[in-house]
Amino acid sequence: MAINIVVVVREVWDTRDLSGSVLDGAGAVRAGAMETRFEPEDLNALEAALRIKDAQGAQVTAIAVGETRSVDVLRECLYRGADKVVRVGADPAGLDDQALAALIAGAIAKAGPCDLVLVGTAVPDAENSLLGRHLAAALGVPAVSWVDAVEEVGPGRAVAKRAVEMGYEFVEVPFPALLSMGVALLEDDPRAPRPAKAMLKLKMKKAEVPVVSPADAGAADPAALVAMKVATMEAIAPRVIESQQVDPESEAALKGMLDAVLKGE
């Protein structure tokens, strides 16, 4: 029997090529200074779900919280092969992962029976998101974090390949379960989760995205659930490094560099 998989996806700041200061004078993130992107590990989570669907059939539902800024992650999920999407109609600004998890858990419960929930582990400003753990607690299901691949699926269980220091562990969990997907490492092609498909784009461009309100998700006042808040944000002064360019064509330059480095200059 085809299983039901929920993938939680997020649109996050793209901090990779950040130029200029991230913060404005008041210590808030300058939204204009940054692009957003589909959180890469959430894209891995989606890819993992779609591979299960390809291999043995599955109903894949993607859930996101909040309005689109510039990347419509839910539609991107449809373009890649998700069957259904749900938007939680709440503003994630100011909410911590505990509050977000309550909203998402409510939306999952409304979406119907679910065997596996997949989320990405990291967000760029906090390499480890707490969302998976809080969501597992809110749903009351076992969870495995830092999952690089789903090794086996069903019946009634999954085996997850979990990255640990110095290697991997293979962890079995019974359904329903939650897996937080790690870095990239979808074995055959680590850096390329599948792209959007032109045909699905045409078909899904106008698809309706149902919205679940916080009240419907069972958390009428998500702000009341926040446990950890940001007190201050301060720009970290970039390290000033005296650096010099070394011409790789010049043997003398390379030799000079080696001598200086090895003498500890």
């Binding site: 200061s21 940001v230 007190a231």
Partner: peptide, 10 residues
């Protein structure tokens, strides 16, 4: 965070 450009206090 933010690529080690911002120190956030929680």
């Amino acid at each position: 965070g933010y690529d080690r450009k911002v120190m956030t206090t929680f």
